[in-house]
Amino acid sequence: MKQVVCMKRRSTLNAFYFLLKRDLILNFRRRAEIANPLLFFVIVITLFPLGVGAKPQLLQSMAPGVIWVAALLAAMLSLDRIFRSDFEDGSLEQLLLSAHPVSVLVLAKVAAHWLVTGLPLLVVAPLLAVLLGLPVDAMGVLVVTLLLGTPVLSLVGAIGVALTVGLRRGGIILSLLVLPLYIPVLIFASNAVDMAAGGLPVTAQLSMLAAFLALALALAPWPAAAALRISLS
């Protein structure tokens, strides 16, 4: 009996790995699309100096918030990709009917999505921080907040996408559902960057972000799986 349970667990891990790999391959074969949310992120940030004026002090004080709001919007715009194409070609039905827990499969899809859309933000963000005149000391903290925060955005966002995937025009509703839930991440992440720019310690904020990540990892896959079942019924 124990062996059966063990086998089962291994095959679930196998399913996780295969699904992750599948999604990465699919994204790679459509690599032109990967750049889009990234471009959006860059463009939104360049709009701010044009809109509010290029006074260095103003920009510097706004930089943490602006970068994080842009990251939030970029993450939200790319969310639809987690389940949309699978919904349209019927793969999602196959996932729900597999012998493995749907929450694990959801986690695999979210992980792939984050690797493709969240991780690139980490690379680009320091460059944009330079554009906005953020002190170099805060750069590291900015990257760490993005590292801890963007997976939370993908996880929480997955619930919203799972709820709206069956809708023809789910995009705007998705933002209405998901953005209020993003507020805690925004508050703590932008504050951490702000504090770091002022040379203050940021361990409290970072540990809050880490706690959010742990909570989202543990809790978000369940409602997302349940929401997928409802959306497909």
Binding site: R22, I25, L26, D89, G90, S91, E93
Partner: peptide
């Protein structure tokens, strides 16, 4: 089902 669940890009 109606949708065959085949990934076109694979």
């Amino acid at each position: 089902g109606h949708h065959d669940g085949i990934k076109r890009d694979l």
